[in-house]
Amino acid sequence: MRIDAHHHLWDLNAVNYPWLMEKGAVRFFGDPTPIQRDYLLPEFRKDAGAAGFSASVHIQVGAADPWAEAQWVQSVADQYTDWPLVQVAFCDLTTDDLAEQLDQLQSLPSLRGVRQIIGRAPGEDQLSGTNELLDNPKFLAGLQQLGERGLSFDLQLLPELMERTAAVLAQAPSTQVALCHAGSPHDRSEMGLEGWSKALKSLSALPQVTCKLSGLGMFDHNWCANSVGPIVETCLTQFGPERCMFGSNFPVDSLSSNYADLIARHKALVPEAQHDQVFGRTAQQFYQM
């Protein structure tokens, strides 16, 4: 089974996404204008299916009402039973009613974990203040509760935050963690990638952390297999194929490539003997599919 372990869907009539529909706002991943429209499973499935995929993992994407988004994703999973679809929903791990919110989310059969973004991009993080989660004891307690419930945590952050984050995750060893977008190496200079690789070791040293080869075009719309080759090689070396999984990050990464080119570039960079693992088995095991 080939599994796309990181993508998004949205029905703009069913769920409100304030960040997506903001007019004239250029984000760290580019101008969202081309994706300010419905993006539904049939469209995603057409591209992913043509590339050999037959199942996927939906990742929360900043809805105004996270519960409404999670319910809508469940309705999609229920409608398209021939396409195995599981989801990672949003939950604020610092909220006082965390147990109740997690109980509610776990009523959805498709739920596998939660994501609460720690870092997106340097400029945006200064405005959002999400980096401060790492210093909040409630955040650590929430991470620990996820592990107790058998839920995973999708981790999105910047290289500058890796060592601090690793110290927090080390205190929640039973919580399985998926590192989104290879840890967002936003500085693609030689020095920038050296710093990212060094910081990444703090996370790859933790056995509960698995790395997603995803989102590689967000910080470089002119990316190609050669330009991101060092990133993929470093991830495979540090984590091993058993802890690496592919994710398209569509439709966000459709701003930098089409699906066919994106998967072709990843397949060219991952040794063929590791394809079954990276493009399927790792995600199948991690997300209990």
Rank of each mutant, 00 (worst) to 15 (best):
G229V: 00
G229Y: 03
P230Y: 08
P230R: 13
P230D: 05
E233F: 00
E233V: 07
E233N: 06
E233L: 01
T234P: 00
C235A: 12
T237S: 14
T237E: 12
Q238G: 02
Q238E: 13
F239V: 07
G240T: 05
G240C: 02
G240W: 03
P241K: 15
P241D: 09
R243P: 00
R243S: 03
C244R: 05
C244S: 04
C244A: 06
C244L: 07
M245V: 09
F246Q: 14
F246G: 07
G247D: 12
S248W: 04
S248N: 08
N249V: 06
N249C: 06
N249S: 08
N249W: 11
F250Q: 04
F250D: 00
F250N: 01
P251C: 00
P251I: 02
P251L: 01
V252D: 00
V252L: 03
D253E: 15
D253Y: 13
S254C: 10
S254V: 09
L255Y: 04
L255H: 02
S257M: 13
S257E: 09
N258Q: 05
Y259C: 14
Y259P: 00
A260K: 10
A260L: 14
D261V: 09
I263A: 06
A264G: 12
A264V: 07
R265F: 01
R265N: 12
K267F: 12
K267L: 15
V270D: 13
P271A: 01
E272L: 08
E272D: 11
A273E: 14
A273C: 11
A273S: 14
Q274C: 12
H275S: 11
H275N: 12
D276N: 07
D276G: 11
V278W: 15
V278H: 15
V278C: 09
